[in-house]
Design a protein around this nucleic acid. Sequence first.
DNA 1: GCGACAG
DNA 2: ATCTTGTCGC
Length: 237
Amino acid sequence: MRIAREPRWSLTVSEAIDLQKRMASCLSLRGGPRNARLVAGADVAYDPSVQRCFAAVVVLERPHLEVVEEVTADATVSFPYVPGLLSFREGPVIVEAFSKLKVRPQVVFFDAHGYAHPRRFGLACHIGYLLDIPSVGCAKSVLVGEPQRALPEKALSWVWLIDKGERVGAVLRTQTGRRPIYVSPGYRVGFLAAIRLVSEVLGKFRVPEPTRLADILVERHKRKYLQQRGVRERLTS
DNA sequence: GCGACAG
DNA sequence: ATCTTGTCGC
Ligand SMILES: [Mg+2]
């Protein structure tokens, strides 16, 4: 798959923050794909000992969520973890993985926030923009904001996530008796569309299928990569 | 200054 | 995110 926009990743922390402020103003919080057939999930894993990171993208076909393509990539960690700047840490290896895809997904789900971000430009917004593909943020914990009211226990119940008086996303209970996930618009997707899209790709787990399968694949890829590297060192030394 | 803080 | 085995609860 061809990457629509050329990213520049070599930025300082303050330059990255400036970029987010500039980019946030040119985002559309409306729309959303109609009856998307190809949906994708992406996730990243790390090996702290060698400053290496890994990414996986899994493409599924709706409505039955069958896997149609899987790709992985790996790279050297090039940016620290700074809350609010996750896309600059995980972006390079994620985009690298997407470039290896043959098919072009119609929507992408990320294991991170989108609009629910200090500067309203989380990883899901940033990567969706670079790929020029509608995207949704599906985080497992909160970065900014608070539920507008108490979240009911029943599965599929949701409430708005409010930050500084502004609606930034939704708190969605995907399973009864389990903690909720945090859904927010990424790129070219509205609030209700984001919630609907996530509900359409839920399986039997708390986390949506696309990101859950990407998580499993990236973990498997990381293990294989490190094993292979261990073998080479043994034969070289 | 203090506390919060995606992955 | 990662370090880590078994164990308790939905
Ligand atoms: Mg992740």
